[in-house]
Design a protein around this nucleic acid. Structure first.
Lengths: 227, 227
DNA sequence: TTATACGCTTGATCCAAATCAAGTTTACTT
DNA sequence: AAGTAAACTTGATTTGGATCAAGCGTATAA
């Protein structure tokens, strides 16, 4: 797992849009990075704030929520070290519709829009690298939008589990990084349904539940196929 | 309705990422545009193809489908003149998961990734403009992703109707550009449900059904609010 | 260790929408 | 204009998942 503390350089290189920078460019970006540590439970940013910075998690964990029209909160992302949020804010000053909360003491690196725009005007290659990364992001989001209408809750849960398990050795027990309630909200369902589906999956022999929030995926292929 | 044929310059300016180009930049982009005419029923691109170009509909109509895991086809977009598809492909070579078919003789403008990347390397300002547009797109898509899980079929149908009606004068009868079956697939539901929902909406006095596939929106506000 | 709260599970019920099954209308063909 | 096929509507039934309501486990704090 990603739990160690990251230095400024490491931070930057973990952000896909900065991944392919040369040493010189990396230096340029480093120069405009700010570092900050948040306590557990602290708010990294709030809905309604003007979004004007990119936030990179150097160490710790944070959750990003969006408030839906019906007043419900929808979990958008779980950020871990190396994850980041708000890269769109580097290009457009928009009001945030989401807010983020630190789950544990969390250190972040941030970059201000004004600093970044000034840098972009100088660094040609940087802009190109970022464009390419944005292309990827858009494709991903488009894909996600369709999958929601096509597949069932069971299917979406299976996808989520397999995806999450990918960072652990195959067939071993691991602790789900989110509570059932949060997984539920993330997948657009309820904790009760998550509970029942996990039982179904266990009965089918596709996974094994442990104590706490632990599970082991036994047959990822069958799980995803739901057969 | 948008039915007239569009020139190369007009085409380009309709694509959001090119909207704010200067005359010089517009000229540069125009230089790498290809034009092509497809017969009714012709395939613009196929699932499995390498996506390597941006396609802009200059005149005509085309449907874009995606094949879901269960083998069903999901209508993604109905493209009309000025609409476009595949701008993400300008930045990353990915395999297409969707395919498009011309409904009527259709003229398209297209831009190849290789040409576009070469242009980007030369035109500094162009890259910055596109970056800003991408920032917006990502925000939009994130919003859409949440709305799908939160709102009901009725709500999504209402949104679709009002959006579609936007290109017609208020309160007048117009023909829906898609069959019920297709609207259903597009919204992730069934023709029967569309039929029933339209009746409900009519009973509520929010719209009026005519013969064929005609409807008139009477109260768009109430319709969207579903109250 | 015991208290207390929070999260998880399980059961019972309810509801929106899918599915199945005829009919009916509309549009296309000759 | 008649015949045919496709699209649409309507009704009956089923179902996946939400909601409501307890009860059960597990973790943090006194």
């Amino acid at each position: 797992m990603r739990e160690q503390k990251l230095g400024t350089h490491d931070c930057i290189q973990l952000v896909p849009i900065f991944k392919q920078l040369t040493a010189i460019e990396l230096q340029q970006v480093s120069a405009i990075v700010h570092e900050h540590v948040y306590e557990k439970g602290a708010t990294l940013f709030n809905a309604g704030d003007e979004a004007d910075q990119l936030t990179i998690i150097a160490a710790g964990q944070a959750k990003v929520y969006q408030l839906a029209a019906n007043g419900r909160e929808q979990l958008l992302y779980l950020l871990q070290s190396g994850d980041f949020d708000g890269e769109a804010a580097l290009f457009n000053p928009v009001a945030r519709t989401s807010y983020a909360e630190a789950l544990v003491p969390t250190q972040v690196c941030s970059i201000q829009r004004s600093d970044f725009q000034a840098l972009l005007a100088k660094a040609q290659q940087l802009a190109l690298g970022i464009l390419n990364e944005f292309g990827k992001r858009i494709s991903q989001l488009e894909g996600k939008a369709t999958s929601v209408t096509t597949s069932s809750i069971g299917g979406r849960l299976a996808d989520y589990l397999v995806e999450t398990a990918a960072s652990f050795p195959a067939q071993t027990m691991f602790t789900l990084p989110l509570q059932k309630k949060e997984i539920a909200v993330y997948l657009g369902t309820t904790p009760e349904t998550i509970s029942r589906k996990l039982n179904e999956f266990q009965t089918a022999g596709w996974l094994k539940k442990g104590r706490g929030n632990q599970i082991a995926i036994l047959d990822a292929d069958q799980l995803v196929l739901q057969e």
